[in-house]
Design a protein around this nucleic acid. Structure first.
Lengths: 242, 242
DNA sequence: TGTTATTTGTTCGTATGTATG
DNA sequence: TCATACATACGAACAAATAAC
């Protein structure tokens, strides 16, 4: 781990508190001891305790409410940090990463899906189909069209980081307004057809086809934004081994 | 953005310092004013200043050296947040993402490199070649073999997120010990030859070849791992519901 | 070499505002 | 309204590490 604090005492104090939180000593939502109590428990001054608690708050692991106490919010540095970090980049940079991850997710999903995850992907497509029939712009839950299906594929890849990055990228793009713009710029029927073909290739465990179709699908979204599009032919040659 | 600090004064103090750093008032590597100076400038107590600076250190924007001062390390919190987030995942998940990003980086670098960035990539390969001739396991600066070249490609892509993700992934893999293991499991001569062929295709702006060669290169690293340490872990990972 | 100034590290006391009962 | 508990915030003081002379 990096050295976030400048001195040994403050650093070890932070490490101790982080370890006790991650160990589940204080469940999510519960209140940790007050500053004077921690001062006594850890044998350090109140300012040192405060600095450590502040760092935990910066990491999203705790939240301190004035005059009420400090409460545990997450046993690990918050996944929302990923979202915060992504939000600092230009949407075009986010889209470039998203395309690469989408292809990877499609490949891996095709190679490694289990029945439960395939069902989730088919459900996503079914929901999209229903939404299109009813001429709704969106999908129940306020989720932008496309997000649900792509998220299901990321889940099916079995890679949690891939799934979390997908979610965070979607949120970051949505907050920039580009996510909705992409979804609305594409003919729903065409989009749904592409999704269906991708799903078919995944179901058939056709890794190359899944990667190729997903690359074309992502490029279509890119084209609507008038960004430079890279060739996609060779992407399919990078098959997942095994 | 979330509100990391619990009170108004400390929060605004943090916001002011963060804004001044992001604005470039203090360049990366330079020293920010001392705590007493900031206390006077901002009109708040030294404890409050210290809490704000500590939060900046937790965000990776500054690093404070005891008795020397506090130095600017990054204009944004993003790279540090990415690293913290990535570190919570399994190395096998990191590698899966890295492969996708490496292919994307090679594609984009081939399509968009500028002379200055091409020079950086060629320098990286030259350094690797020199290190191999001297039979050194590592590269000057303690950088694991492979990291320098892949980083140069990510830089050449022009996508800051891609470059930051590459750096963070390398650091996260190194801290897990897998980065070095990968580099040492591959024949240096073979690795260097692959790097050289990738560089050649990038120089020729052959996008398809760059993507293909990089995919093969990454798969070689994956195969090495799969046949050694990760066999059971990768399979169980893909079966976990999430 | 050693002395001094600078800067951060740490602790403590106290005052203030706010939520709870 | 009052009393209590708690978090916020300030400032003083000393310790420790570093750099410059």
């Amino acid at each position: 781990m990096a050295e976030p604090m400048g001195s040994a005492l403050a650093r070890t104090t932070l490490a101790q508190l982080k370890a006790r939180i991650s160990a589940g000593e204080w469940p999510v939502g519960s209140r940790i001891p007050t500053e004077p109590e921690l001062t006594e428990q850890l044998g350090v001054g109140r300012s040192t305790v405060r600095e450590a608690v502040r760092s935990l708050a910066t990491l999203g692991m705790v939240e301190t409410l004035p005059a009420r106490g400090t409460f545990v919010r997450s046993l690990t540095p918050a996944p929302s940090l990923l979202f915060d970090a992504l939000q600092t980049y230009h949407p075009a940079e986010l889209i470039g990463i998203r395309r690469a991850l989408d292809v990877e997710a499609a490949q891996t999903a095709a190679a490694q899906w289990i029945p439960e995850r395939l069902e989730a992907m088919e459900t996503a497509v079914a929901i999209e189909m229903e939404a299109m029939r009813e001429h709704n712009a969106g999908i129940p839950g306020g989720v932008t069209r496309c997000t649900l299906f792509h998220g299901a594929i990321a889940q099916a890849s079995g890679n949690r980081l891939l799934a979390d990055l997908d979610t965070s990228l979607s949120r970051a793009l949505d907050s920039s307004g580009l996510g909705a713009h992409i979804a609305e710029s594409i003919d729903p029927a065409v989009l749904l057809n592409e999704h269906d073909r991708i799903l078919t290739s995944i179901r058939a465990r056709d890794v190359a086809a899944a990667a190729h179709l997903m690359a074309l699908h992502s490029d279509a979204a890119l084209r609507t934004l008038r960004h430079t599009v890279l060739t996609t032919e060779m992407t399919t040659l990078s098959q997942q081994p095994g």
